[in-house]
C-alpha cells in the first residue's frame, strides 16, 4: 500500500510540473501584450516601456517561469497586472463563490441522479425507465447556458421570484446568499444530473446481472433487497468516479454560467483575465484548477485502493 501511495504521489508531482510548464509556455506564445492592452491606442512608446518594466515583463522567459513557480511554492501567487492586487487574495475571494456554487450544484445533481437512476434501473424497460432515459437524454443535449437563460426569463423576469443574477454576498446571510446561487446551481446541475443518472442506471444494471446477485436472489432475497443490499454498493464505484470528475468540472467549467448570471467567481475571473492578458492571474488560476483535478483524481485512486485490494497488487 505504501509503495502504491508513493508511486501515485510521484506521478502527481510530475503531472504538476509538466502542467506548470505547459501553462506557462502556452500563455507565453499567445499574442498580445498586457501593457499595450492597458494603455490603449494612444499610448506613447516610452509609456509602454515604463509600464512593461513596472510589470516585470522584461525579464527572460525562464527567469519569469522560475519566479512564478518559486512564488507559488511559497504561497506567493504574484500581483495581478491589471487589478494590482495579490493574485492569491483575488482567487481566495472568488473561491468563496465558485466553491459553494460547485458544491451546491453537485449536491443537487446527486440528489436528482441517484433516485432517478436507481428507479429506472429497478424497473428496467418500464414507462419510468423510458421516461428517465428520455428526460436525461434531453438534459445532456440542452446547453446549460440556454437552460439558464430560460430560467432567468421565467423565474426572474416573469415571476420575479429570483433576481436575474449577481451575488448578494455572504454578509447578507446564508439563505439569501444560497438563494442568489440557486438558479445558477440548477442550471449547472441539470446536465450533470442527467449524465450521473444514466451512469447510475447502467452501472446498476451491469451489477444486477452479476453472479453474486443471482446467488443473493437464490438465498431468498427479493429483487428489491438484492438491489439495495448488494448491487447498489458495488454499482457506486463508477458513479463516484464520475462525481469526482464532475466536481472539478463544476469548479472550472462554470465560466459561461458565471457570465450569464454575472457572478464574480473563478470562471469570470479567468475570462476577464484572458481578454486583458492578465497572464499571471490566468496562469495561477489554471494551475490551481489543474491542482484540484489532480488531487481529486489522486484521492479517487486512493479510495479505489482502499476499497479494492486487487488494485494495490497490480500497480
Amino acid at each position: 500500500m505504501l509503495r502504491y501511495f508513493l508511486k501515485r504521489l510521484l506521478s502527481l508531482g510530475l503531472s504538476l510540473v509538466v502542467a506548470s510548464v505547459v501553462i506557462f509556455l502556452a500563455l507565453e506564445v499567445v499574442p498580445g501584450d498586457p501593457a499595450a492592452y492597458m494603455l490603449g491606442i494612444n499610448a506613447q512608446p516610452d509609456t509602454l516601456a515604463a509600464l512593461r518594466d513596472e510589470l516585470g515583463l522584461n525579464g527572460s522567459v525562464w527567469a519569469r517561469y522560475l519566479g512564478w513557480v518559486g512564488g507559488m511554492l511559497t504561497g506567493d501567487f504574484g500581483t495581478s497586472y491589471t487589478y494590482r492586487t495579490p493574485v492569491a487574495e483575488m482567487i481566495g475571494e472568488r473561491l468563496w463563490i465558485s466553491l459553494p456554487l460547485a458544491l451546491y450544484a453537485l449536491t443537487l445533481s446527486t440528489l436528482i441522479a441517484f433516485p432517478a437512476g436507481i428507479w429506472a434501473a429497478s424497473k428496467r424497460g418500464s414507462v419510468v425507465d423510458v421516461a428517465v432515459m428520455g428526460v436525461t437524454q434531453l438534459g445532456v443535449a440542452i446547453p446549460n447556458f440556454w437552460f439558464a437563460m430560460l430560467m432567468v426569463l421565467v423565474f426572474a423576469i416573469n415571476l420575479r421570484w429570483f433576481s436575474a443574477g449577481g451575488f448578494v454576498g455572504w454578509d447578507a446571510g446564508f439563505w439569501l446568499a444560497m438563494k442568489s446561487l440557486t438558479l445558477p446551481a440548477v442550471a449547472l446541475a441539470l446536465p450533470q444530473a442527467s449524465i450521473l443518472a444514466r451512469v447510475m442506471r447502467s452501472s446498476l444494471l451491469d451489477t444486477l446481472s452479476e453472479d453474486f446477485i443471482r446467488t443473493a436472489r437464490a438465498k431468498g432475497l427479493t429483487k428489491r433487497q438484492a438491489l439495495w443490499r448488494h448491487a447498489l454498493r458495488n454499482a457506486l464505484i463508477p458513479v463516484l468516479t464520475i462525481i469526482g470528475l464532475q466536481f472539478s468540472f463544476l469548479l472550472a467549467g462554470a465560466i459561461i454560467i458565471e457570465n450569464v448570471f454575472f457572478l464574480p467567481g473563478l470562471g469570470r475571473l479567468v475570462f476577464q483575465s484572458i481578454s486583458a492578458r492578465d497572464l499571471i492571474v490566468v496562469e495561477s488560476v489554471v494551475m490551481l484548477l489543474v491542482l484540484a483535478v489532480i488531487v481529486v483524481n489522486f484521492a479517487v485512486d486512493m479510495a479505489y485502493a482502499a476499497v479494492d485490494p486487487r488494485l494495490r497488487g497490480r500497480r
Binding site: 432567468v152 426572474a156 433576481s163 436575474a164 443574477g165 449577481g166 457570465n259 450569464v260 454575472f262
Partner: peptide, 18 residues
Amino acid sequence: FKFISDPTAAFAAVMAQD
C-alpha cells in the same frame, strides 16, 4: 456600479429591475 458584461444578462438584469 455593477458590472454585467453579457448582453443577455444585461437585458435580464434591467427587465427584472435588479
